[in-house]
Design a protein around this nucleic acid. Sequence first.
DNA 1: CGGTTAAAGTGAACGCTGTAAACATAGGGT
DNA 2: ACCCTATGTTTACAGCGTTCACTTTAACCG
Lengths: 185, 185
Amino acid sequence: MSTSNEAYHHGNLRDALIAAGLNALEGPQGKAPSLRELAREVGVSATAVYRHFPDKQALDKALANEGLKLLGSQQAAAAKMAGGGAAGFAETGRTYVRFALAHPALFRLMFTQGHPVDANDGPDDARALLTANTQALTSDRERAETMALQAWSIAHGIAMLMLDGRIPADDALIDRLLDTENLFP
Amino acid sequence: MSTSNEAYHHGNLRDALIAAGLNALEGPQGKAPSLRELAREVGVSATAVYRHFPDKQALDKALANEGLKLLGSQQAAAAKMAGGGAAGFAETGRTYVRFALAHPALFRLMFTQGHPVDANDGPDDARALLTANTQALTSDRERAETMALQAWSIAHGIAMLMLDGRIPADDALIDRLLDTENLFP
DNA sequence: CGGTTAAAGTGAACGCTGTAAACATAGGGT
DNA sequence: ACCCTATGTTTACAGCGTTCACTTTAACCG
């Protein structure tokens, strides 16, 4: 009852669509999939999608949320692996940019998507994590908040500029640009 | 012979399309215009566009180039006004972000567009200007280059995050995040 | 059980998009 | 005066997101 059941009712169309969507977004050549394309992929008529999502944007938002969860967990893992603190903070940024380069289409979708992206995707949100890590670097609370946003901005900027081919997507360059020693002395 | 000439031959369709495109992109609600929409606007059939642009992407690229020229000139003006050097450098970043907020759709198009964006848009390119300004801050040439890219990244990141509603599009926040005193001591 | 009902999927249709192909026009150069 | 070529037009096609009316299925309930 797991795969390719030819039943009239698909069983779990919503999840299947999201899986197909994530799959289509993957790879360096990943393009934003069309609603009809995903429906075909899953073996269902295009209009069936509307039983589970009010419109295409809702599907996209679901995919974006999935991506945010993924990024969040990867960042959390990286920070823990690095032992938290300053090292964790630095590693968090690197992970962010590497994620963008590894999943360009998904990363774009995550942010192109209408802002809110529903706050209910858990506390492992990228922003919260950043702020938590900067608090290890300074006792000044406002300064920590500012540093978190600055770090997010620079990581996001690097990611975007590299995705758009404005800056070579070079691993060494990532490290050089994210060098926290020089940025936050 | 300036406007709404009902002649069969439009006169200067290419420029008219670009003007209509820039106009459609303007305003905070600006959307990426469709090829047919622009053709309608200019009073010409959709396929006439193909006499001047090989495809839609080429039109978009032309619009993007127009945007880059505009941003470049605004940055140059801002830097000159601030008197160059460190002050000019800081002002350049602020201008970059403000431009993005003032012309969101155009700014997005400028970078969503396939990378190269043809290098022949003059020397007032955003990147060259940045590098030039950072050289006033340090004698180390490589360090200047790194700082330029870091500054570009953070400005771009702030702009994007604000456009996407991830960070409040607050003017004071821009200044706080771009504070070069703290970032590049 | 058997019957009703609501959830889940279908097909045809609409207006939109970018693009191709074949045809029309007009204005400038020899 | 002519023709040529640059520039436009019409028609057509496939794909998109979305609506509507319809059908199928599974689950619940007496």
